[in-house]
Simulated assay, not measured.
Amino acid sequence: MRNRIADLFNIDFPIIQGGMVWTSGWRLASAVSNNGGLGVIGAGSMYPDVLREHIQKCKKATSKSFAVNVPMLYPDIEKLMDIIIEENVKIVITSAGNPKTWTSILKDNGITVVHVVSSLKFALKAQEAGVDAIVAEGFEAGGHNGRDETTTLVLIPAVREKITIPLIAAGGIATGKAMLAAMVLGADGVQVGSRFVASEEASNHIDFKKMVVNSQEGDTQLTLKELAPVRLIKNKFYREVQSAYQKGATTEELKSLLGRGRAKKGMFLGDLEDGELEIGQVSALIHDIKPASQIIEEMISEFNQRKQELSKW
């Protein structure tokens, strides 16, 4: 399946695995890459030495292309970038920050740069900064999200209309049908997050995976906009946040409630009550835990089947 994204990353299928904190380690990244997609190591939950270990293990586990996702809010981002350059990583996906800060430095070191945005405004800024491709992530997505609440169905054609570089759609994509729809809207590829949370190779806790596959429509909501908007499963912690809002909590009080390590507690350690459980709306369509290879195979099979069916119209 050759197109601009497949050619840019030298992959078989234009499927990019989301670089999710406490989920996207070397096992998941290498499994996705070995099966034709672009595996991504999520550096946002890693200390610098841990990131180096994951990169080195991923190199041993696959000869295919893989990437590292770096949220630019990371406090020691210079250390992460130094390691990425030293380890000769070929693709970096930046998010949560100004793409101008690192794009030229990375590209000067021969690295392909992708930036994640949630609006047309930031897509144009990313293109101006010189990135090689853009991930446009709709409101449906899990984890940290945009404040504008623009859905994928609206965001993708709006961005496609104004940019010329390759475009990757994200948010609400877990099936081949959704992949086809995103590409009809103008995307060159898709980024898949939540579906890979419920994969055998994902490093998050098995109890979190089970909660994801048991979730229903309406079980997630975007919250904490005053800090950094994040889509969460509605658990005890989420209800405490809503109670704080009702009492008129200040930003500082919300920060205190969030505390430190809340996402690790929930997603990695499996505390389903007091932890932060980040997942997308599409979790309602995820019903089982599978190997990454099977997830990709089923997405491509369904993509081709639906494409053939639609061509008969």
Rank of each mutant, 00 (worst) to 15 (best):
V70K: 02
T101R: 07
Q308A: 13
T103F: 02
S104A: 08
N34M: 01
N109V: 01
G110Q: 09
T151G: 09
K236A: 15
R4K: 10
Y238D: 12
A178P: 13
G176E: 02
A67F: 04
S283R: 11
Q191C: 04
R147F: 04
K209M: 14
G186H: 12
V192I: 14
I93Q: 04
G138R: 03
I168A: 00
L155E: 15
P291D: 01
K290N: 10
H205E: 15
L155R: 07
L272I: 13
I300N: 05
I206M: 12
R306H: 13
N145E: 10
S283T: 15
I295Y: 04
I233D: 15
S104P: 12
K57Q: 14
V230R: 00
G218F: 01
V40P: 12
L8K: 01
F9L: 06
E298F: 05
K79F: 08
S203W: 08
V154Q: 08
S24G: 13
A133S: 12
E201L: 00
Y74A: 04
G146W: 03
T112K: 06
T152Y: 11
W26K: 05
T220C: 09
E78Q: 03
K107T: 06
G270N: 08
A6M: 07
I168P: 14
Q242M: 15
K162I: 12
P157Y: 09
F208Y: 14
Q305P: 10
L185P: 13
I168Y: 09
R262M: 04
P157I: 01
E86K: 09
T94E: 05
L269Y: 06
T112V: 14
G275K: 06
Y245C: 00
G172T: 00
A67N: 05
I91V: 12
N98V: 09
F13L: 02
T62G: 02
I279S: 10
S45K: 01
L272M: 14
V159D: 11
F268A: 15
V190G: 07
K162D: 15
F208V: 09
A43N: 09
Q242L: 10
L38P: 11
L28Q: 04
H205D: 15
M179N: 11
